[in-house]
Design a protein around this nucleic acid. Structure first.
Lengths: 253, 253
DNA sequence: TTCACCATGTAAGGGGTTACATGATTGC
DNA sequence: GCAATCATGTAACCCCTTACATGGTGAA
């Protein structure tokens, strides 16, 4: 019940602290409350090994190391990769084909989770294999037939559990901000023109989200709020572009 | 000069259209203007193979296929992975160690390019090997010595060329927006509490960027504008959270 | 003495993109 | 008939995260 790590370097204790009576004690220390996924016992030697799903407060365990954090992984049960939940969310709002999900993510989902079609189709097949979604073959309005996916009861439960959880912070990769960081490397006019082009691109995005917002009512609260996020995010980006342009324009060179 | 693809399925022409006189013609068609990186000749059979760096307008080339788009890759010369430019940008603004760059990206660069330290150190070594940066060993103020990296002339040129280019659109992964999309799966109070927690987290971020903005002047225009982006982005996120909370609160269930 | 932080590294693996592939249908 | 879009798929590979690793310093 207490697995020894087989790398020959383990120097810690390997005896079990187990037994029914001391389920909450480990080598004399009480287990901290904020441990979320615990199989039976925890030993780790570094605070920074332990993030996000499993939190252990500090190096109190430092010299006890024999078991690895990764041994706990299996206890974080039923965790799917994020894309699967993204697809479940898309299907929940409206039964969709793989093609439609891809388009939806690339248009509407621009600002939350954009992926290529080559990731979507395999993920859908896995979801169907796990019976979280089901498919129906329908003739295409134009073009070939497509498989329309819809939720199952199990899928709905899974999605609900995911929605109830907290999110990690948004992960953003935006090279443009870093280019602006180095704008003093460029002649003023080059910089100005670049930021104008960026602004124009976000203006197009903004208009898309505004149009989408206008199509929706409070009856479709979820999609409306997602569109609102698009509007607010693009407006903020455009406002920033304007500030950048102003500041650059006032610059001497 | 016109490479035949060796998969046995190539059915196209393999004769060169080359020669000094017809540099801009190919099999009777003029090359479109919007091709950015062209080695010598292009044949492709799908529009959607061709993205971002190389743009070919349509299936006009469809039945000419013999060469693959990937054969063009080497012509997009000197392209490094984005992280390297990110690090160059960080070092350009101020000589920094790997540890400092990691911290900088995780704090200041939250909203543009956050990475773990295990990606940073190898990338720095590659940059140094290519002589785009140089390092100096300095005693740590507290803790062990560290390698402080600074730009070389070659690195500065490389960075300037990158800054002058356009950026791809920001890539964002934000699960929270998709959770909101499905908020009607949750009891109203659960949803409200979740969005309040998210708001609080972004409030903390906002205050960080406000403090940083207050530290900077127009003398350090780049860093100031990056901080401004943080402020505007977080304000927009908080405004969205408030709208979400309002809408959810007015909801019946 | 413990805790938190400083500072740097390697190995494995995951999740995603890119390139490659096919072929039907509608619109100009 | 060319162009664009609909619709789905596979294989290779890349970048980054996660986990694992070491060890010094300063504050309570």
């Amino acid at each position: 019940m207490f697995q020894q790590v087989g790398d020959g370097r383990a120097r810690g204790r390997t005896d079990a602290a187990g037994g029914a009576g001391d389920e909450n004690s480990f080598l004399g220390h009480g287990l901290p409350d904020n441990i979320e996924y615990v199989g039976k016992y925890i030993v780790t030697r570094r605070f920074d090994y332990v993030k996000k799903n499993i939190v252990i407060p500090c190096a109190r365990w430092r010299n006890l190391g024999a078991m690895r954090v990764s041994d706990l992984k299996e206890t974080a049960a039923g965790k799917e990769k994020p894309l699967k939940y993204v697809l479940l969310a898309g299907i929940y709002n409206e039964p969709r084909s793989g093609y439609e999900l891809t388009k939806w993510l690339q248009m509407v989902g621009q600002h939350c989770w954009s992926v290529e079609h080559s990731s979507v189709y395999p993920a859908l097949r896995e979801l169907e294999k796990d019976e979280l979604i089901q498919s129906e073959r329908l003739p295409g309005t134009r073009g070939p037939d497509r498989s329309i996916y819809s939720m199952t009861a199990a899928g709905l439960d899974k999605l609900r559990a995911w929605v109830a959880n907290g999110s990690p912070r948004p992960a953003i990769k935006d090279e443009q901000i870093l280019r602006v960081l180095c704008f003093d490397l460029l002649p003023r006019d080059t910089a100005l023109q670049q930021i104008r082009e960026v602004r124009a691109d976000h203006q197009v995005q903004l208009e898309f989200f505004l149009a989408r917002q206008a199509m929706l009512t409070e009856r479709q609260l979820g999609p409306l709020l997602v569109a609102r996020r698009g509007v607010l995010a693009e407006q903020a980006y455009i406002a920033w572009c304007d500030e950048v342009a102003d500041m650059i324009a006032r610059r001497p060179a």
